[in-house]
Each structure stands twice: as structure tokens, then as C-alpha cells.
Nucleic acid binder design. Structure first.
Lengths: 191, 191, 191, 191
DNA sequence: GATGAATGAGCGTTCATTCAT
DNA sequence: CATGAATGAACGCTCATTCAT
């Protein structure tokens, strides 16, 4: 509990600093400061900065996955499931701007290069929801017959861009707009 | 010619290093080394690292614009023009992987933050092709009635993602596939 | 005590190097080396080189002031007080050649330009002794009716020169000579 | 003539830059620029920066000497000759602020350390006017019996300080004030 | 002769990491 | 366990000097 306490403070501080200023704006000393711990303490919980950064990324990834599967019903029609996942993803990021900015920073960085494609689909972990959805959709000829990666691009590319523009203040998304955006994505992938 | 020689070497070296390793993986000394010039020489051509980086960005931007307007016919129907632009963009990046990676690095960095939205559309210079296209399309009710930014997201989000996946080797794009991808993007934005 | 240890070593090293070789002969790395600390350590104690330099200056200034006010009796006649202050200043610098050389370097440097006139008189702090002395002397018509600055020049100009010549070995000052020099200065300012 | 032309431009540029910004504010490239010559050209006239700087110093020294001997009459009484020299020196510097600032910069710098005492008295060259004056004055018991160096300090210390304060704008000297200041200096050295 | 592009050693400063307390 | 002072390699940048033209 005590231990987790400090760990959480560190992770939180790293999240805020990196989301706000990028990796270059988040020296270990500053993270420690913001977390209210000694600089050396970070190294009790994370072997080094890289580990801290990738661990934090994976934590966020997990939370995203969790939010996607919430209320997800495998038995619903493909279109409906797509709309659910897309909206859930968009809403999650919109309501967690720090996490979103962090994920973006992470992906465009040496850290993120390695795990590029594992991105949202988390090839190792639990939630292959999207993957299954696409494969099923292609099989049923409901979704365009593209390689899986391209389907991901068609679906996530716009969603991430829209989320970014909202967070940066270029658009103001509301539920209606979110819905329409996800539908537009569906138009992109559907046959 | 002589003069351009060194400048070009420097720009080339910066492009390769930054595209390959990101900004932090391209110290000035390494750029100089790779360019085969002394460290100080870079500063004859660029006031500082920031200027080098943004100049190089603008150079690439210019080349992208040029490739987009090539063969672009304002009098063709909107859909056709969209397909032209999309395919041209995709092809340009696919044939210039370093430039593509560089642009990506740039956008996710303190440098690129300022010009986020000017991105491809280059608000200052010549080619507002996309912008005009979207506005015209919305007016003619051929394109979904979204804020401009979102239309950009719907169109570029997937294109950039697809380009990245090709460059990273996750898909192998050919002309047919490119065409189909751009059509899918069109499905996303068209009414 | 521990803390002051390193700080003191740094300050001492800076003093010696700058007094001996001027500012350009005292790179941070060399100061660190001479102080027996790592280069980065200096920055724990001083924000940057400028701060180190001006802090050190103010430290010396303080010690000078202290030595001037020692045994200074406001109720003694003006001439006597002048002789006291002059001799004290001269003796202090003669017994602290490094401090003297440092102060000289400082005054002729971008750092010292700002505080030119505050020089010895330390307009902010305690010891406006000289200023008051001169003003009183002028009012009582004991001292020549010159602008204050010129009185300073007449008094300090020779004192600093003499101190420098002693330190550089051009004369050997003893108590008797000091006394006579200060009396000569008095002859310069007195009516 | 051609050759001297460039040399003069270089020297002038160096004088202005160094007087204005100190040595650190006068890189060779900037001097060359201001002189309207190529950077390499300076090295045709001066072996290196040190030589340029000391040559320029000696040039100024020569001009000071010349201005001192102008109208100097060895047969006049000592006091009168002192007043002449003092006023001439003060006036010269006041009317040549660049030269004055340069000399000051020079003296407080590694360059000047070597030639400290040669300063105004120019031990090698022509004009030992002051030296002779002082020696004569001491012999005639008109001037205080101090070592020569100290007499220099008593006379020049204040003069240089006053010149500086005028140039920096802390006092406004006019002929009357100059006269009085030099007389005060005389009071300092006279028996 | 004159040039100025090129050089690279050297500067001030930062920051991930260690380790004595 | 936790700390934070200490470290030093590495960074971006400057500038006296050289040398091909």
C-alpha cells in the first residue's frame, strides 16, 4: 500500500509531465519532484527511465482495453459492435486527455517504434476485439476485403486524429458528433 | 553548386538520422559526421538546430505540395479530385519513406506543435487544394457536413497510417491497393 | 557544514582562477576540477556561471564592508574617519590579493558594468560610510565641493591603483607607507 | 596606401567593437565584417588576435603620448607642468571615449597584465615626461617623497576614474571642472 | 593579395543514474 | 527502504584560425 502509493505518484507525475511537455520536458528529477519523492526512489520501482515509460504505456493500454470491452456484446451485429468500439475508444481518450497525449508521445518516439503494431490491438494481452471483429466482418463480406492492418488504419487513423484535434481545441466534440464520426469510419471500412 | 553541396549533405544527413532515430538520436555532431562536414559548418547554413529542422520540414512540405498539384485538374468532379490527391499523397510518401518518417517525427515534437493544423494543407502557401475541395464538396452536399478539421482527420488519418504501415513493412502496397485505400477514405467522407 | 564544504571549494576555486587568469581563464570545467568536484556539481549551488560570479562578488563586497566598519567611529572628526576608512580598505585588499584581483576583474567585465557606481559604496546594504562622510565633509566645507562621484574617484582611484601595484609587486607597502598614501588621498579631497 | 587602408579599417573596427562590447563581444569575424574585409584578411596584417589587440593598444598609447607632449614646456615650473599633463590626459580621453574604453578593457585583461606598469609612462618609447617630472619634483622637494609608482597611482588613479565616470555619464566634465580635478590631483602629490 | 567557407577544440549547461547516509 | 547530492558524458553552439580558390 505504502509502496504502491509512491509508485502511483511517480507514474502520475510522469504521465502529467510527459503528456504536457513531451519526453524532453520530463527529466527524472522533475518527475521525482512532482511525485514528492526522492530522485533515487524512482529507481526502486523502475529499473530506469525507459522502463518507467514503457510500463506507464502498458498501464494506459490496459485501461483502454478495459474501457473498450465494457458493455461490448459479441452477439450484436458487426456494424453495431464497430460503432460501440469506436465510440468507446474516442470517448475514452477524450475524457483522458493526459493518457491520450501520452500515448501519442509514446508512439512517436524510439520507445514506441518497437511496439507499433501491437498498439491498440495488444497482440499479447486480452482484447483482440477489433481484430476478431474485422476478421469476422471480412468473412461475412460486410467489411471491405483489406489486409487487417489497413482496416485498422482506416478505423483508428481518423479516430486518433479526431481525438487529437478535440484535445488540442480544434473541434469541440459532443456525443452526436462522436457518433457521426464513428459512423463515417464505418463507411470507410464497410463494404 | 559548391555551396549547395554541403548544405545538401547536411540536410540529407539530418533527414536520414532524424527519420531513423528521432530528434534525440540526431545530435548535431552526428549529423555533421554523417554529412562529412565539421560540426561548426552546419551553423553556416542554419542558424541553429531548430532552424535546420524546420527548414528541412518546409522543404519536404514543398515537395509534397508540388507532387499533389501535379496533374491536378480543378475542373474534374470532386470525387475524382479527391482520389487524385489521396493517391498522390500516399504515393509520394511511399516513395519517400525518409521524408514520411521525418514529417511524422516533426509533427510529434515541440517543433511541430505550432504548425499542427497547417500540416499538409499549408495554410500560407499555394496548395489549399484539400481545403477548397472539402468546402466545395460540403457546399455541393457531396461530402458529409463535418467541420473542416474532421474531414481532414477522416481523409488524412487513414492515409498517414497506411503509409506508415507500408514503410514499416506491415503491408505491401501496390497501385491497386493504394487506389482501393483512397476509395475507402472517400467512402468515409462522402455523403 | 558538509554542504558548505563543496560550495566553499567551488567558490575558492573560482576566486583563485578568476583572480589569476580572468574570466576567460576560468572555464566551469576547470573550476570544478580545481574544486575537486564534478562539473555538474557547481550547478547545484549556482544557477549558472553568471550567478556564481556575482554571488562571489557580493560575498567579497560584504567582507570589505565588514572590514571597513570595524572600529569605525562616526563621532570622530571627518579627516580621522577618512584616514580610517582609506587605511582599512587598503589593508583589506593588500591582505586579500585574490579578492582584490577578483574585484578588479569583475568591475571590468560585462558582469560589473551594471553595478559600476555601486562599487565599494554598496548603495543597497549597510555601509554608505564613504558617501555620508563626503556629504558631511562638503557641507562642513572641510572637503572640496565636487560632485560625489568625483570625490569617490579622487579617493578610490589612487587607493585601488596602489593596492594593485603592491599586489603585482611594484611596491612593497608597509603600515607607514599605507598611512602616508591615505594622507595623500586626503590631501586630494580636503579643502 | 591600399594596404594601409585595410589595416586602418580593421583597427578601427576592432577599436569600436572592443570599446563598445569588450573583448568577448568582438569576434574576428565581426571585426572583419565591420571593417568591410574578409575574415582571413585580418591575418595578413596581424599574426593573430592577440597581436591585433596589443598593436592597437600601442597605437593608442602613442597618440596619448603625442597629445601629452603637445604644448609641453620643460622649462615651466613643476606644478604648471603637472597641471598641463593632467589636463591634457583627461581631455584626450574625454574627447576619445573609444580609445579610453579600449585602454581600460585592455588593462583589465590577460593582455594588459604583462605591460601593467609600462602603461602611460611607456618605458620603452619616447615620452617619460611624467617620470622625469616626478623625479625632478621629488628632488626639489616640491612633490611628496613617494616611490615613483605611488606617485603615478596618486596622479593617474583619479584621472582615469574621473574620465570613466564622465564617459559613462556619471558626471559632466567641463573645462573648469577638469582644471579643478587636476588641481586636486596635484594636492595629492604635492608636498 | 584577398577571400570567406570550413574547421574542431572548447565552452556552458543538462540530466539519467549511483551510492553514502 | 528512501534519499538527494554528486557525477560526468553528452549536448548545442561559438569562434580563432586555416587554406583552396
Amino acid at each position: 500500500m505504502q509502496k504502491s502509493d509512491k509508485r502511483d505518484e511517480i507514474v502520475r507525475a510522469a504521465l502529467e509531465l510527459i503528456a504536457g511537455q513531451g519526453f524532453h520536458g520530463a527529466p527524472m528529477a522533475m518527475i521525482a519532484d512532482k511525485a514528492g519523492v526522492g530522485a533515487g526512489t524512482i529507481y526502486r520501482y523502475f529499473e530506469n527511465k525507459d522502463v518507467l515509460i514503457t510500463d506507464l504505456y502498458r498501464e494506459i493500454e490496459g485501461k483502454v482495453m478495459a474501457s473498450l470491452s465494457e458493455g461490448y456484446a459479441t452477439e450484436r451485429p458487426i456494424r453495431e459492435r464497430f460503432l460501440h468500439l469506436g465510440a468507446a475508444l474516442l470517448k475514452y481518450f477524450i475524457s483522458s486527455p493526459l493518457e491520450f497525449r501520452y500515448v501519442e508521445q509514446f508512439h512517436n518516439s524510439p520507445y514506441g517504434t518497437a511496439c507499433r503494431r501491437d498498439k491498440i490491438m495488444g497482440k499479447g494481452g486480452g482484447c483482440n476485439a477489433f481484430k476478431e471483429l474485422f476478421e469476422e466482418g471480412v468473412a461475412q463480406q460486410v467489411i471491405k476485403d483489406f489486409p487487417l492492418v489497413i482496416l485498422f488504419d482506416l478505423a483508428f487513423g481518423p479516430l486518433m486524429s479526431v481525438a487529437r484535434d478535440h484535445i488540442l481545441g480544434f473541434v469541440e466534440l459532443d456525443d452526436r458528433l462522436i457518433e457521426r464520426v464513428v459512423e463515417a469510419c464505418w463507411d470507410g471500412v464497410k463494404r
